[in-house]
C-alpha cells in the first residue's frame, strides 16, 4: 500500500509542481500573481483536445501521439500566456500592484466563460494514450500512463533548469528577476525576456493541463480552478519566486493530500483541510516559504 500511495503522491505532486512553476516564474520577474494561470492550463488542455479531434489519425494512440498532444498543449498555452501579458498586463507594469492582480482575475473569468459559452459546458472526453494496463510492482499497480506523466513532468523540470542555468536567455531571465531596471540598463530587452518568461510558464501550465486531462480522461471549462489554486498554494509553500521551491512545494502538497486521504480514517473529506493547515503552519514559521528568500533573490 505504501508504495502505491507514494506513486499516487508523485503523480499528483508532479502535476502541481509543473503548474506551480508557471506562477513562480512570472512572480520572480514581475512580482505579480498571474491568476489567469489556471485558465492557461485549461486552454492548453483544450488546444490538445482540439488537435486530437482535428487530426486523430496523424497522432496515433501510442506515446508519440501523447507527445504530440503535449507539444500542442504547450504551444497553445504558451502563446495564450504571451498574449495575456501583452494585452492585459504590460500596460499595468508600473500601475499600483492591485491593478494587474484584478486584471488577471478578469482575464481568468473571461477565458473561462469564453470556453463555457463557445466550446462546451460539459466534461469532454480527453484522449488517453494506449498502454494504460496496470503492471504489478512491489504490491503496487503502476500503469504506463502514470509513468509517462511522471517522466514527462520530471523531464520538463530538468529542461527548465538547464534553460535557466545554461542559456543566454536563462541568464537574461535571472538578471531581470534580480533587478529589472538594472538589467534594462545593461542592455537586456526586458519586454522580450518577460514575453519569453510568460511563454515558458504558460507552456509548463499547458503541459500540466494535458497531463491532467490524460490522467483523468476528461476536461472541462473550469478544470483549471482547483489545481490552479492548489499549485499556487504549492508555490507559496515552497517560496514563491523560487524555481526549486515550486517543485518542492508541488511534491509536498501532493504527498500531504495523499497521506491525508490514504491514512486518516475518513480522510478524503479532510484532505484539503490537512493540506492547507500544513500550509498555514509552514507560513507562520517561514513567511517567505520553505526555500524563499526575503525578496532579495527570486529565481
Amino acid at each position: 500500500m505504501l508504495v502505491q500511495q507514494l506513486l499516487n503522491a508523485l503523480t499528483l505532486g508532479a502535476i502541481y509542481a509543473l503548474i506551480a512553476l508557471g506562477y513562480t516564474l512570472v512572480y520572480g520577474i514581475l512580482a505579480m500573481i498571474n491568476f489567469a494561470h489556471s485558465e492557461v492550463l485549461m486552454l492548453g488542455a483544450f488546444a490538445a483536445w482540439a488537435l486530437a479531434g482535428w487530426a486523430p489519425a496523424a497522432l496515433g494512440s501510442g506515446l508519440w501521439g501523447a507527445a504530440g498532444l503535449l507539444a500542442a498543449g504547450m504551444l497553445g498555452a504558451g502563446l495564450v500566456n504571451v498574449l495575456i501579458e501583452r494585452l492585459a498586463y504590460r500596460r499595468l507594469r508600473r500601475a499600483p500592484r492591485l491593478a494587474p492582480l484584478i486584471s488577471a482575475i478578469g482575464v481568468s473569468i473571461v477565458l473561462q466563460n469564453a470556453v463555457f459559452l463557445w466550446v462546451s459546458t460539459q466534461s469532454l472526453a480527453f484522449p488517453q494514450p494506449a498502454g494504460t494496463s496496470a503492471v504489478s510492482f512491489l504490491g503496487a499497480s503502476i500503469n504506463g500512463l502514470q509513468l509517462a506523466i511522471l517522466g514527462a513532468a520530471l523531464g520538463l523540470m530538468i529542461l527548465l533548469h538547464l534553460f535557466i542555468a545554461r542559456t543566454r536567455m536563462g541568464r537574461a531571465m535571472r538578471a531581470c528577476a534580480d533587478d529589472l531596471e538594472a538589467a534594462k540598463l545593461m542592455g537586456v530587452n526586458a519586454d522580450f525576456v518577460i514575453a519569453v518568461t510568460f511563454f515558458v510558464g504558460g507552456a509548463l501550465g499547458g503541459a500540466a493541463g494535458v497531463l491532467y486531462g490524460m490522467n483523468y480522461g476528461s476536461i472541462k471549462y473550469n478544470m483549471g480552478f482547483l489545481p490552479g489554486i492548489k499549485a499556487f498554494t504549492a508555490a507559496v509553500l515552497g517560496g514563491i519566486g523560487s524555481v526549486r521551491g515550486a517543485v518542492l512545494g508541488g511534491f509536498l502538497l501532493g504527498f500531504l493530500e495523499v497521506l491525508a486521504a490514504g491514512y486518516i480514517p475518513n480522510g478524503a473529506q479532510w484532505r484539503d483541510v490537512v493540506a492547507f493547515a500544513a500550509l498555514i503552519l509552514v507560513l507562520l514559521a517561514r513567511p517567505s516559504g520553505l526555500l524563499g528568500e526575503r525578496a532579495a533573490q527570486k529565481v
Binding site: Q5, N8, A9, L12, A260, G262
Partner: peptide, 15 residues
C-alpha cells in the same frame, strides 16, 4: 466523503 469536482481518488481507493 469526497467532493463534487474532485479528480483524484487514488489515495482513497488504495486504502
Amino acid at each position: 466523503g469526497i467532493s463534487v469536482g474532485d479528480k483524484d481518488f487514488k489515495a482513497l481507493l488504495t486504502r
